[in-house]
């Protein structure tokens, strides 16, 4: 995104992006609630507009290690979607899913655990995307999910590559999901949606608002 694109954003545009986060992550939180059989809350989505370097700081610093499921969004409004959570929470999810309390990402041969986490990301991102597609009536579908457990800067920068060709700013739609009732088993995940530069106007027009 260029500075001019950013300057052209109106309050209405920001509201739309926030609503997208709301609808998408709301659907994903419901899917997760059913999967884990517990109530999952969702925070008010944040629409972050910043340079790439600022963006890394806003999400907790580029060095922070996270478990991250990445999907490329294909179709009429392409972009990138990340489901990010602390590695120890990812481990807990996987233990529950595969019924093995000793599972750890540290050890060898965690192929089953990794596919379980990938599948979790697939289900959540899939529900996010299908809600988004219903809302905008755009044709959107996810790629096969990819998994990485590494520094957030290293994984998220991959989602900035398309944007970086068109300027030095990114618009990130960040929605957190959490479970407050069980602090010992708390879940605190983030959905990051990073539409490609051209997708913003397509999304806005699909919802009857002038593009950038």
């Amino acid at each position: 995104m260029t500075l001019d694109d950013i300057r052209n954003l109106t309050g209405m545009h920001i509201d739309i992006l926030r609503e997208i986060g709301n609808i998408g992550a709301g659907n994903a939180a419901t899917a997760l609630s059913m999967l884990l059989n517990k109530k999952i809350e969702m925070a008010v989505p944040r629409v972050q507009i910043a340079t790439f370097a600022e963006m890394m700081e806003l999400i907790g610093g580029p060095e922070q290690v996270v478990a991250c499921v990445y999907l490329r969004i294909e179709g009429e409004a392409p972009g990138n979607m990340f489901f990010v959570l602390p590695p120890e929470q990812a481990e807990r999810f996987v233990r529950r899913m595969i019924g093995d309390d000793s599972f750890s990402f540290q050890g060898e041969a965690h192929e089953l655990g990794c596919s379980a986490l990938q599948e979790l990301g697939n289900i959540l991102a899939g529900s996010y995307l299908s809600a988004l597609a219903d809302f905008t009536r755009l044709n959107l579908h996810p790629s096969v999910p990819a998994l990485a457990i590494d520094m957030i800067g290293a994984v998220l920068s991959f989602g900035l590559l398309e944007l970086s060709r068109a300027g030095d700013y990114a618009i990130l739609i960040d929605t957190a999901i959490y479970d407050e009732r069980r602090p010992d088993e708390s879940i605190n995940g983030h959905f990051f949606l990073l539409p490609d530069p051209d997708s913003f106007s397509i999304i806005f027009r699909a919802l009857g608002v002038d593009g950038l």
Partner: peptide, 14 residues
């Protein structure tokens, strides 16, 4: 310039 050092965090494909 020394004694300062320079660093960058979270290089992936960069």
């Amino acid at each position: 310039i020394a004694p300062n050092v320079i660093r960058t965090c979270g290089l992936g494909s960069c």
